[in-house]
Design a protein around this nucleic acid. Structure first.
Lengths: 168, 168
DNA sequence: TACCAACTATAGGACTTCCAAGTATATTCG
DNA sequence: CGAATATACTTGGAAGTCCTATAGTTGGTA
């Protein structure tokens, strides 16, 4: 979108913060900005890779989740919890996945409020293919070293736990 | 949005990946997911804090950038580059900031294609207040340790450099 | 048993992001 | 100099996120 800049803009922001005397906030402010930017870059790469499958990352996450589940099916509220997004985001994604024939909505046996998401054959195929390509073109080439990945996974898991994502 | 879960859902995904034999992709896949989730949590906190100012984080970034600039003004394309977002995102944010009276569009002296963003007095006040609150309520309480912040800043700066954000 | 609180999914709305296309202005170069 | 190319911004559209409110179900309890 933009060519590389001469200086790291986030480092510049950190200097600004320090120059204004907000010493203790400067470094974490840079961290927050860097996390947001990193997410943007990774998401962009994923979307690019998924484009040939007519998938977005949000929709990929849904069919990937289903394809990993034992029964290839799952209630919507469980998908919402596992993917940690708002229930309406699942509704939105499923509307499109259903239109594309990758997923079906089926009634739940015992709870008439709930809806079961079921992966179609086509959905299973696409999920497996997309996972394959994401593995080789994104996850195996993130640009992080093995050590960095370990550090990130440890640090971010602690953060998410403290933020109330899960208990241990 | 959701109560804490019994297990870390991202760690579960990592196990799934390994169970399917994608050993080398498992850990980085967890990293990517963790970064996205962390961004979501931090963004949510920021939006919550900014709500009383009638600001979103995207709009805060624009007025914060202006308020740190020497002249309290800047061409739109420069703001787009520094914030590393698509030009249309700046247009969108500025439309709303202008409607709220925090920013004005002014013609550029020498380039009639360009538009100067100028912070109003009110915009300057709001930017300073919002920064103050974000500092105390978000950046000084991220939940990261000092060491984790150093690690993250180093690791993510390397990543962003390799991704072409800037050169050194 | 009858009621009420909690839960499941959806509709509608606000906001953000990106992309593609279009307009106007600058710049470069034959 | 004038044509071609590049740059700056806007418009319209697709998609995602979250929120609030609502309809239907469920399940505990008075």
């Amino acid at each position: 979108m933009h060519p590389p800049m001469a200086k790291d803009p986030i480092a510049e922001v950190q200097k600004n913060w320090q120059r204004h005397g907000w010493v203790s906030a400067a470094a974490p402010a840079a961290t927050v900005t860097a996390i947001m930017r990193t997410q943007q870059i990774l998401l962009g790469r994923a979307q690019e890779i998924l484009k040939p499958f007519d998938l977005t990352f949000a929709r990929y996450e849904v069919i990937s989740l289903l394809s990993f589940s034992r029964e290839k099916r799952m209630p919507m509220n469980k998908a919402s919890q596992l993917l940690q997004v708002h229930p309406t985001s699942i509704t939105n994604a499923v509307d499109r996945l259903e239109a594309a024939g990758l997923v079906e909505r089926q009634p739940h046996d015992s709870d008439r409020r709930a809806i079961l998401l079921v992966l179609t054959q086509e959905g299973k195929r696409i999920a497996e293919q997309a996972t394959e390509v994401l593995n080789t073109e994104l996850f195996e080439q993130t640009g992080f070293t093995t050590e960095e990945i370990e550090d990130l996974n440890r640090i971010l898991a602690n953060f998410r736990e403290r933020a109330g994502d899960f208990t241990r």
